[in-house]
Design a protein around this nucleic acid. Structure first.
Length: 564
RNA sequence: UGGGGCGUCGCCAAGCGGUAAGGCACCGGACUUUGAAUCCGGCAUCCGGAGGUUCGAAUCCUCCCGCCCCAACCA
């Protein structure tokens, strides 16, 4: 493939192809999309796919994207969610300008259109009880039955509908239905409900209404009012498209939007059902919507995932119509790829093992220059204190090292990153036989990490000066679920991972980490990316692991264990 | 058994009649003051299956198989 054609297909998908064709054929003069969340929960990584699509496409084609709250069911919606959603969309990097709308902005117009349908004989008030209406709708293979109210005179329908609005009837007493086709193979066309009575206050319209339009009756017309050209939604709404079109065909709407569907995102080891996520929060299985283990944008943000990585990920998974489950490793890859380029390097010891440098003068210390980011020279350097007593990672020492272990062991010499070569001279254990301290010697000639005589070491390890280190708790996160397909064989909650968070409380960090900003990930060299959590207090830092570094040694060990 | 969709490498995903892109994962190897990053190499004679049309098919036709969605006064 030529470079030019590779360029042309890059970032292309069926949605963009459709839009390009519409533009070329002059079916529309500009591109207007919308992201239409229902404010009944927090946005998650699956929504990010839709947000990036809608806002991304608008940007690419020089159009605009509206943020519209689909707030037609006040029983489930809250102002707190409206606020959180706006915060999260902005965090992801998108701006709706002054195009912030709500389906509730159109309640009066929608109501007028409903009366219009009644007047045209295309809608009727039905008094059939909920249960009965359900059975009368028929089944997938049998047609529905007509309600006895289906042929109510227009005047009676109008009168009843107006009295419904006036609040004369209790919840559920009556609904307004479209008169379409009770025998349709598409259940959505079997006289769908347009309005239901709900004596519930609405976050925006308060008590102005006691009947509310359904999603179907609100969505397409809202699109038309806003002159949306391409209404992009997920596959499960495909069956609703004929109804979407029916309303636009039967109402004097100002524009003719078109709906297109794409496959929603699924991720291994992850649940993206709002119902389940809400349950996790309500029942305290996580600390909140922004728990770093949650796939919500708020959770990812708290974990230290940068918005660029989320956007990169969405670009990488593509846009298609086939149901699929993306390997969460792809997401981790996008996070590492971005953080590798921008994150500052720091040293932190998670499981400290004390090291005393016997030939380093007591009471002395010095500062060593360390590179902040080898991938970015402009990030500069910093000075890190070194002294007689240090901490190294407990995992970096083995008294009886196996063949492929390159790190510290009795008698072995390794490099302390940006500092000196040290050699392990003695191992000190406690009564239980646990290694609690190493006595080492250093070679003063290797300052900075290079031996003048050219001798090599097999490992370079991170370290921290005991006297200068700051104490911290570091939280390591593991998948919230134990199965790649949570809930596949029963209750989702039974697949919850009881060890999804591992808090290490005795961690020691290099002093520069005191300046780290909440939510901004830095790399703890050789370990992964971490960022300060809002739980941090002065004197007690708390860091979250955003994602670990790839770990070839861990894989060698795993392979060894598997062969045994 | 009704209606609507979808099936290309372990996972995503290009491809639109001219002889299977790319990414992730995985496996080698180089390099390395992060066992990271980077770099090089490997990884679908085959596109759910079977027929057919054609000089030529993943792409067109037929039949079959499998998976997903729909029977809320949710979205």
């Amino acid at each position: 493939m030529s470079e030019e054609s590779a360029e042309r297909t890059a970032g292309r998908d069926f949605v963009r192809d459709i839009i390009q064709a519409d533009l070329d054929a002059k079916r529309c003069a500009e591109v207007v999309t919308r992201f239409p969340p229902e404010p009944n929960g927090y946005l998650h990584i699956g929504h990010a796919k839709s947000i990036c699509l809608n806002f991304g496409v608008a940007q690419e084609f020089g159009g605009r994207c509206h943020l519209r709250f689909d707030d037609t069911n006040p029983a489930k919606e809250e102002q707190a969610y409206i606020d959180a959603i706006q915060r999260d969309v902005r965090w992801l990097g998108y701006d709706w300008g002054n195009h912030l709308f709500h389906a509730s902005d159109y309640f009066e117009q929608l109501y007028a259109w409903a009366e219009r349908l009644i007047q045209d004989g295309k809608a009727y008030v039905d008094d059939t009880p909920l249960e009965q209406m359900r059975t009368m709708r028929g089944t997938l293979t049998e047609p529905g039955q007509a309600s006895v109210y289906r042929d109510r005179p227009v005047a009676e329908n109008l009168d009843l509908f107006r009295r419904m609005r006036a609040g004369e009837f209790p919840n559920g007493a009556r609904v307004l239905r479209a008169k379409i086709d009770l025998a349709s193979g598409n259940m959505n066309l079997r006289d769908p409900v347009l309005y239901r009575i709900l004596h519930v206050a609405h976050p925006r319209t308060g008590t102005a209404w006691c009947l509310y339009p359904t999603y179907d009756f609100a969505h397409g017309q809202s699109d038309a009012i806003e002159r949306i050209t391409h209404s992009l939604c997920t596959l499960e709404f495909e069956d609703h498209r004929p109804l979407y079109d029916w309303f636009l065909d039967n109402l004097p709407v100002p524009a003719r939007p078109r709906q297109y569907e794409f496959a929603r995102l699924n991720l291994t080891y992850t649940v993206l059902s709002k119902r389940t996520l809400t349950e996790l929060v309500r029942h305290g299985h996580v600390s909140g919507w922004d728990d770093p283990r949650m796939p919500t944008l708020a959770g990812l943000r708290r974990r230290g995932v940068p918005p660029e990585a989320v956007r990169d990920f969405v670009r990488a998974i593509g846009m298609a119509r086939a149901n699929s489950v993306v390997d969460v490793a792809m997401f981790d890859h996008a996070v590492r790829e971005h953080l590798n380029k921008v994150a500052l390097r720091r040293m932190a010891v998670l499981r400290p093992l004390k090291v005393v440098i016997e030939n380093y003068p007591e009471g002395q210390s010095e500062e060593l220059e360390c590179v902040n980011n080898p991938e970015d020279a402009s990030a500069g350097t910093r000075r890190v204190p070194f002294s007689r007593e240090l901490y190294i990672e407990h995992d970096d020492f083995l008294e009886n090292p196996p063949k492929k272990f390159f790190r510290l062991a009795p008698g072995r010499e390794v490099r302390l990153r940006s500092a000196y070569f040290i050699t392990c001279r003695e191992v000190i254990k406690n009564a239980a036989g646990t290694v609690v301290e190493l006595r080492c010697t250093y070679d003063p000639a290797t300052r900075g990490g290079n031996a003048p005589d050219g001798r090599k070491v097999q490992a370079t390890m991170h370290w921290v000066s005991a006297r200068h280190a700051i104490a911290a708790e570091v939280r390591l996160y593991h998948p919230l679920f134990t199965r790649p397909d949570p809930g596949a064989t029963g209750d989702v909650l039974s697949d919850l991972n009881p060890q999804s968070v591992e808090a290490l409380s005795a961690c020691r960090l290099e002093p520069a980490l005191a300046q780290a900003s909440v939510g901004v990930a830095v790399q703890f060299e050789r370990l992964g990316y971490f960022c300060p959590d809002p739980d941090s207090e002065s004197g007690r830092a708390v860091f979250n692991r955003t994602v670990g570094l790839r770990d070839a040694w861990a894989r060698v060990q795993a392979a060894g264990a598997a062969n045994r």
